[in-house]
Design a protein around this nucleic acid. Structure first.
Lengths: 191, 191
DNA sequence: TCCATTTATTGACCATGGTCATTTTATATG
DNA sequence: CATATAAAATGACCATGGTCAATAAATGGA
């Protein structure tokens, strides 16, 4: 590892705290780097010495939030139905749709970045795969495909349902209802 | 409708042509509004009088491209297998992954915009639903769910496969192969 | 043809994310 | 402690998308 002075950690912590404070006040989309550095009491350039760009900061904060939801899901009892599965993941999806901007950031980073460093959001998705796999192994769903593939499908349909949820034309149907149609067809095919 | 002078159409056409020319040279991501207006011989403000923002221009160009692929798919013979279906949609997916930026724009606008005006990309997705529905009605896939739902699933899995394709970690598997795993499980469940 | 009104265009200006040469601060070494 | 070297912070500066009051051009009517 590279060397790092204690002061570096302090500055970074101040930047993160300032960012969280701002988000609490005006939301993710309303965050301005200028306001972050102002509250953290550092110069503009310092921000970019700590985070590659604004998106990188967002990734850290959003990824952490997603991780917290996965913690809870991991320690929940195995769902015995599609509805129970929905209850398990809705808190995470509610966060993912709290702002259009948040959803966009998540989409942009759900795969690893183009570079070799894999970001917090991509990590959260990878972890979601693991958590789902473990959960789905003992759940009463189709058994002709692996739990891993089952989980990937849930992810795909969740994204689809979220995207449509943001759409003015299609949002007369509540998210859980829409997703439940998808998951019924995916997890319990009758054909 | 609002009135519109002939000159408006001319200016708009010049802007679009300039944009297309630039994209042919440096790609979608490399397009700068400044260069567009320069080549079109108009002022900066004129651009934004014709397009709400840069994304709106991109939507028009990308949506048109997607539409062209749907035209071709619509007039193709009914696919008799997952592989045949893949052959049908791969050209569209190849376009969608030609640039990371293009994929991001598509994702951002795959649902209608927050406003009441539904954009070209959202329209293309809606049309894709229709085209798929018609195609899938007579295809030898599962019959326990509607052709429309079948199509929505294909869309969801295509997006998922594309997102993973951009991911450095996961892209050792070619897109068609990855997608074929998804579609087998979705269209021809054995459970 | 002349004027009034609507429509289109202009370009200086702004907001904001991001860069980088320079300066300051910390740390190691004799 | 003094000095050299590495790490961190600075802030003037840039690039680019986007705004808007002012201006020009087209259109319809008397």
């Amino acid at each position: 590892m590279t060397k790092m002075q204690p002061r570096t950690l302090k500055t970074r912590a101040r930047l993160l705290e300032a960012a969280q404070q701002i988000i609490a006040e005006v939301g993710y989309e309303g965050l301005r780097t200028q306001e972050v550095v102002k509250r953290a009491g550092v110069a503009k350039g310092t921000f970019f010495a700590h985070f590659h760009d604004k998106d990188a900061l967002m990734e850290i904060l959003i990824g952490a939030e997603m991780d917290a939801f996965l913690d809870r899901a991991e320690n929940a009892p195995t769902p015995d139905s599609v509805d129970a599965l929905l209850d398990l993941i809705m808190p995470l999806l509610d966060f993912m749709r709290c702002e259009r901007y948040v959803f966009d950031v998540i989409l942009r980073h759900s795969g690893a970045a183009a570079k070799d460093n894999i970001g917090p959001i991509a990590l959260a998705f990878a972890r979601q795969d693991e958590v789902f796999s473990k959960i789905l192994e003992n759940a009463p769903f189709r058994k002709d495909i692996s739990a891993g593939l089952l989980g990937e499908g849930i992810q795909a349909f969740a994204i689809q349902a979220l995207a449509l949820d943001f759409c003015t034309i299609n949002n007369e149907m509540p998210l859980p209802e829409r997703l439940s149609v998808y998951l019924d067809a995916w997890l319990l095919p009758k054909g």
